[in-house]
Design a protein around this nucleic acid. Structure first.
Lengths: 127, 127
DNA sequence: TATTGACTTGGAGCTAACTCTAAGAGATAT
DNA sequence: ATATCTCTTAGAGTTAGCTCCAAGTCAATA
């Protein structure tokens, strides 16, 4: 699979994919005899995995670390697990922040709705 | 309230608070006779509101827009509501991304747990 | 053979959101 | 009066994560 195909399949730009490889977010992609990337299934799985992790904000740095551990083999299983647990913690906090913000947005939107529909005429302007 | 007190109360650096004011994320803060910020309740509410919104990733740009509309008064209520609805949409998507990532992390963590506890000896290394 | 087009690289450039620095003002303690 | 402390500003610097560019290689087509 060429980089163009992978780019289209996963909705990442070619530049981004090359950047991820350069940064060590995915293991080196196999090349053909003229040095052009030829993505195999394993590479695609990595792309998909990284895309998912990045979509919720895991940092380049931590994903790079994960790939490094992965490449060292079975001896790093415990360390990899701990790394993932740390990131799960962070995501749970983020999820909480978002829930709080959503509550607040919902409240405000309802308030504005009431004002617009004339149900509430007595409103005070406050943040 | 001085900037030091506000900084401590909300866990934002003084620099960040000044930056937010400069960027128009919060309306101008009242000053004493020697030009030093003296945060009143309204200012504090703005700080708290912006902190919440920023904590889940709403951009400086969109929050600035919101403050602008707010300062124009009641005529912008509809526009403000639409802006908040747009941001709610974004947050809901983000929430979905995080949920997917959490599922994936949980799956992997369990797998690693099984490997560590010896419950699973047949594992293939894959992303 | 010449051209086209998709790939390659290193490295420069960009944006968002801070973060830091330098220079200075004003209130308070010694 | 002097020193200390907290504040002020404009503007420079930093970081993460891309994004773009120029120059070059290679395979396929006219």
């Amino acid at each position: 699979m060429t980089i163009a195909e992978v780019s289209k399949k996963y909705g990442l730009t070619q530049d981004t994919i090359r950047y991820y490889e350069k940064m060590g977010l995915i293991p080196p992609v196999p090349r053909n005899k003229s040095g052009i990337r030829d993505f195999d299934e394993q590479s695609c799985r990595w792309i998909e995995f990284i895309k998912c992790m990045r979509s919720s904000g895991l940092s380049i740095e931590v994903l790079k670390k994960y790939v490094e551990l992965f490449n060292k083999g079975k001896s790093t299983v415990k360390e990899r697990k701990d790394l993932l647990i740390g990131q799960r913690e962070k995501l749970l906090e983020k999820q909480e922040d978002i829930k709080k913000t959503l509550d607040r947005l919902n409240y405000k939107i309802e308030l504005y709705d009431d004002i617009i529909s004339g149900k509430r005429k007595d409103f005070m302007e406050e943040p």
